[in-house]
Design a protein around this nucleic acid. Sequence first.
DNA 1: CCGAATTATTTTAAGCATAAAGTATTTTGT
DNA 2: ACAAAATACTTTATGCTTAAAATAATTCGG
Lengths: 168, 168
Amino acid sequence: MALAKEPTPVSAKNGADQEAEYRAQTRVWLRLLACTTLIEGELRRRFREEFDFTMPRFDVLAQLDREPSGLVLGELPKRLMVSAGNLTPIVDRLVEDGYITRTPSNLDRRVQIVCMTVEGRKAFRRMAKSHGAWLAELLADFPADRFDGLIGELDELKGAVKDALQKP
Amino acid sequence: MALAKEPTPVSAKNGADQEAEYRAQTRVWLRLLACTTLIEGELRRRFREEFDFTMPRFDVLAQLDREPSGLVLGELPKRLMVSAGNLTPIVDRLVEDGYITRTPSNLDRRVQIVCMTVEGRKAFRRMAKSHGAWLAELLADFPADRFDGLIGELDELKGAVKDALQKP
DNA sequence: CCGAATTATTTTAAGCATAAAGTATTTTGT
DNA sequence: ACAAAATACTTTATGCTTAAAATAATTCGG
């Protein structure tokens, strides 16, 4: 098996190694998906039962909570990693329900500013508190001294995936 | 309603420690969600572009691929961690498109058996191959020697969450 | 054996998600 | 100045997702 001088990592691997790596990658993905699905499903269920609210709505409020003077509407799809069209009806309903306001900008009439209302802020804080407690409950059995390590791994994974998406 | 005697670990912690743990838990959750969203979005896009197919449909085929003699329909929602009602239209379309068959059981007329067709199996293998390659591409920048460690952490996390969900 | 509970599956209503096309509005190039 | 490109957002079509109610078949208890 003559090895190239400047082998790309993948092509340098023999069949068995690459097979093993494929399996490991698939396993990582399936575990990741399983953990997320499990936690997300439970959080969604509790949001619904306790507050008659949804996670996407909560996510919007969470973004606005950090912006006392509001946000340009177009920032939301970027930060939440969802499509713009998706957000329209969600924002519509949050406005209807009095959690946020949507006001057209005077400088550029295409742009709208969304901003949390006082009631919205109050409701958000109440829900955020429960959200934190639910998460603590769900993750209670995971050893606390390994959180930082896991966070580091996930950060690196996220960076690796983002890099891979950048390339083409 | 007297509960357990032993102090819960949480109540034993002082405020600052608990705050720190809350933050770490939230960070884990947000990273987990970000990684999954990133990968899932890209996989979905490619399934759509390359095969005009969706991940839920692929997931059904993946389950059936491992069952040469088919599966009781009711097994699918359990294995895929989705609701039964969700599966009905997905299975409907897979049958329509000739990937799988759905045949009522003779012993219990409530039950149906779903089974992949020859063409379904062929299509699945073609897509599964691409799926593996896409995953390899997306995860290529993550150091291969740390996959096993990450898999272990995620397995433990999944177990911890499952245990927490069992309790109530 | 027969009514009541259970089980398997489907239907319905509401909401989330995307891609692609559409509507304004502003900016840019000449 | 003005047509064309770009930007911000909405609309539409399609599909996934759940919870809850409905349907149908089986099992169970008396």
